[in-house]
Design a protein around this nucleic acid. Sequence first.
DNA 1: AAACGAGGCAACCGCGTCTGA
DNA 2: GTCAGACGCGGTTGCCTCGTT
Length: 323
Amino acid sequence: MGRSACCAKEGLNKGAWTAHEDKVLSEYIKLHGEGRWRNLPKKAGLKRCGKSCRLRWLNYLRPDIKRGNISPDEEELIIRLHKLLGNRWSLIAGRLPGRTDNEIKNYWNTNLGKKILDQQRQGSASNLKHRNKNGEPVSKKAKTMEDMSPNMTSPSPSKMPPVVRTKAAKCTKVFINPDPHKLPLGHQHCEENNRGGLMLDRHAGDDHTNNGSSSLSSFSNIADQENSSSDFLVDFDMNEISLASLLNSDFPAINCDNVDQNGDNSLSHSVDQTAQIFSEEMLQHLNGGSHDCVQVQPNLVLNFHSLTSFLDGDQGGEEWLGE
DNA sequence: AAACGAGGCAACCGCGTCTGA
DNA sequence: GTCAGACGCGGTTGCCTCGTT
């Protein structure tokens, strides 16, 4: 039959996690890896529900979590992606390395949602209203996560792993490689998922590398194929790159409900379709209207944001490209 | 300095989907 | 094919902190 019953709820701790609990959970996961959340508390000696452990790990304890304020570029990206995907926070988070769905959701609910409403009310061009003179978003408190949790030491930028594997990185499953032989490196780790699509192997430690190199190699192929792509590459300058500018194509908001209704179970998660719509449109632009490369695009475009964000990091590009 | 209100964030809850027997 | 449990996700809640009076 099925699996055994979920964790019994009696006698379990609830509420805020203690530093000791954090330590126990972190060390257990370092030793045994993620997953099997149900049995984890018992094995680790925690009086917590497995769900709670999972949430704590994903949203707070993972070493690759990016702490600190959301940058203006990230904010723009969130807005764009929210316009595209709606409240699919995990997917949005998947495009923002180091950010969790919960963090983005909270940020939206507390900042961006209001900002968008304000903008809608007051018309356009009030985009900078909530920013300081440096163009940074201004929140009432403007405090960092370190301020909130002094016991949590945020990794320094130089030590911080460049790409967080958020849950939503799953959306790499939309990748359908028409010609696997053209894809070096990371694509060796591609595996077929049970929805019929290809999904990048996301095992700890190597997945960001795979993910990134996949995107880059695909991206390079396009550049080879299309002259117009060279313009795209210019925009891809590692120092100058702005996430927001990458999303400046004015793709329409997509009604997620409609997308859901169209989904069929073969490859098609609604989000996958959304991704395809997104990428097709964008790539049509990038390729000067040619659809020659469209098959490759969904993954490319979606990963592209991870890629660019990743490359924004000090050493991200080096690690990514050169192991 | 104290009280109050608002904002922000971590965590919980419930539901839908996936998976294994 | 069916069922039950695990997992993942989004919505919501409650607590803590900060700002204002």
